[in-house]
Amino acid sequence: MSWNETKQLKKRKILGKIFSGLCTMAAFSSVVLLVVLLSKVFFDGWAYLDWQFVTSFPSRFFEKAGIQSALMGSLWVISLTCMIAVPIGVGASIYLEEFAPKNRFTHLIHLNISNLAGVPSIVYGILGLVIFVRGFGFGRSILSASLTTALLILPIIIIASKEAIKSIPNSTRYAALALGASKWQTVRDHVIPSALPSIMTGMILAISRAIGESAPLLIIGALGYVAFNPQGPMDAFTVLPIQIFNWAARPQAEFHQLAAAGIIVLLVVLLLMNSIAIFIRYRYQRKLR
């Protein structure tokens, strides 16, 4: 090998080192970002985070302000959203994967769902405002909020469950059918139980998206200041992200710290749900191996 060639090879190898270094940096920068973001929020909000903060109602005076009504509002909205979105979402994915004929219309539904997943959340807010708040006359209530959020997370649930059901091998279905099970029995007793861990992972991710969602609820009229806990689905409400938004939008630094404390509560809830999802997936993967 001539001197010239080895020099060129060296150059190529150095270029490769630089490239892999840049890619590694890009990948680990998101770890750094996550740490910076979390510690920023943590340091800002720590001082305000106590039991009184969780159990108080919002107030003009930041020393007395708390998130009880927002927390209860979030709880109400999320529970109702789940009750609406989970059966419909899983049902739709079962239909599409197991029962739907393979024709143009079915293809259109698939296409439609993946496009719906990309519609900005604020557009769902406008839909909810016109259909649920005004059209059905539900007003600016928890029910309107839950219906809107349910529509918003429906595509996510459907896509995740579709993938889960698709990954079940056909041999499972043939075995059940050969033993005389009807189509629905096959799906109910064999396909769904095997797909359940993946379906649940997708569902938890969709629900955590719903917990953090605030834009559509602002549009349909969640209130900024709610000094009572909602008693039923027709009550006015606020949710945690909107309470945080209201505090963050104020110019005073004290309210920013309140916002940070609220964010810590929100993140704790979300991290809890995410870790459950990851835990389910790891267990499931280990079982498959």
Binding site: S30, L33, L34, L37, V41, L205, S208, R209, I211, G212, E213, S214, A215, P241, I242, I244, F245, A248, H256, A259, A260, I263, L266, L267, L270, N274
Partner: peptide
């Protein structure tokens, strides 16, 4: 990162 609510990023 993708699960963190957008309002948190705004803050």
């Amino acid at each position: 990162l993708s699960g963190i609510p957008t309002v948190v990023y705004g803050y």
